[in-house]
């Protein structure tokens, strides 16, 4: 019999790491909602943001800046890099490809991925760079209730907190600012939005910028967890099933999808993995996504797909 304490520990750990997947998935959702572009480059953007931040931090601290000043300047630098990237992508790739079909746009973002990966590693180096922004030790809670208590990673709690703040911030931004309303209008129907005078290319720049900043936030958390390194780009592949389960167009969906994938994956790995050979984390999320799609083709929270002739 599986101990309840162990089960809870696995469940909580899974939910927490699921939130971290959501952080990456959020960037996808933002861009897909506003421009219909399925942005494969989100993982590469996390890598670029992380590398820019960690290299700037190293340099500033080596120059003798106090830690807080280095962090502020480093984040500012990384944000500037992401803004430049967003502007270039909108100007050079997404703008000229307007009105092409979804597959072409998707493939073009894979091209963008190659460029970003190459450029990020060429400019900032291709080693593993440790990033220490958040505590990485663990708490033991409920020690009275279960033998040994439940282990909770502090970093995961930070990640969940940041994701919560981020979603709240994005919700406020989308609902209550002028740009946010324009964004929603463009997401709804970009031709109609264009005709009432909303500057489309500016809006798309803003969307890519916001996605870049979300990537920066994801990079701070994941960089602390794994160190900033090339394998961080594979996060994009981890985030895809999250996205599909939640629905491509839903911000709450990205969070819910992350929780489902995170918890499901860990539980399957711990309780099912040993009997069929381990390593099932590698594909479990995708099979889960496939199962969800068979029941709800638009994902759990996606807008209903209505087809007309």
């Amino acid at each position: 019999m599986i101990a309840l304490g162990q089960f809870l520990e696995v469940l909580i750990g899974g939910l927490m790491s699921g939130v971290l997947y959501s952080l990456v998935a959020l960037g996808f959702v933002l861009i897909f909602k506003a421009s219909g572009v399925f942005n494969y480059a989100q993982g590469a953007m996390v890598l670029l943001a992380g590398l820019a931040l960690v290299r700037a931090l190293d340099l500033l601290i080596a120059q003798g800046f106090p830690f807080w000043a280095a962090i502020v300047l480093g984040i500012g630098f990384a944000a500037a890099i992401m803004a430049t990237t967003a502007w270039l992508i909108e100007r050079l790739v997404i703008g000229p490809l307007v009105n092409q079909d979804a597959l072409t746009l998707f493939m073009s973002t894979i091209g963008v991925t190659f460029v970003l990966e190459g450029a990020a590693e060429m400019i900032f180096g291709s080693d593993v760079y440790p990033l220490r922004l958040f505590p990485t030790d663990a708490w033991f809670v409920f020690e009275g209730l279960f033998p040994g208590g439940i282990l909770i990673n502090k970093l995961d709690v930070w990640g969940a907190l940041i994701a919560g703040i981020l979603v709240a911030g994005l919700a406020l931004f989308f609902q209550h600012t002028k740009t946010g309303r324009a964004l929603r209008a463009v997401a709804d129907d970009h031709l109609a939005a264009h005709s009432v005078g909303i500057p489309i290319s500016w809006i798309w720049f803003v969307v890519w910028l916001v996605a870049g900043l979300v990537a920066l936030v994801a990079a701070t958390v994941w960089g602390t967890k794994l160190g900033v390194q090339f394998s961080i780009t594979f996060l994009a592949l981890k985030a895809l099933p999250v996205l599909i389960i939640g629905g491509l167009t839903s911000i709450p969906g990205a969070i819910a999808g992350g929780l489902i994938v995170g918890a499901g994956e860990k539980i399957a790995e711990v309780f099912l993995g040993p009997s069929i050979g381990g390593g099932i984390e590698y594909w479990f999320a995708y099979v889960l996504a496939l199962a969800v799609l068979l029941v709800r083709p638009q994902g759990l929270f996606g807008e209903r797909i209505i087809e007309r002739i």
């Binding site: 399925f38 599909i244 068979l294 994902g299």
Partner: peptide
């Protein structure tokens, strides 16, 4: 049942 990019991700399975 699944179409377009949703299908693309499903085939990743």
């Amino acid at each position: 049942r699944i179409k377009g990019l949703y299908l693309a991700v499903a085939t990743l399975a």
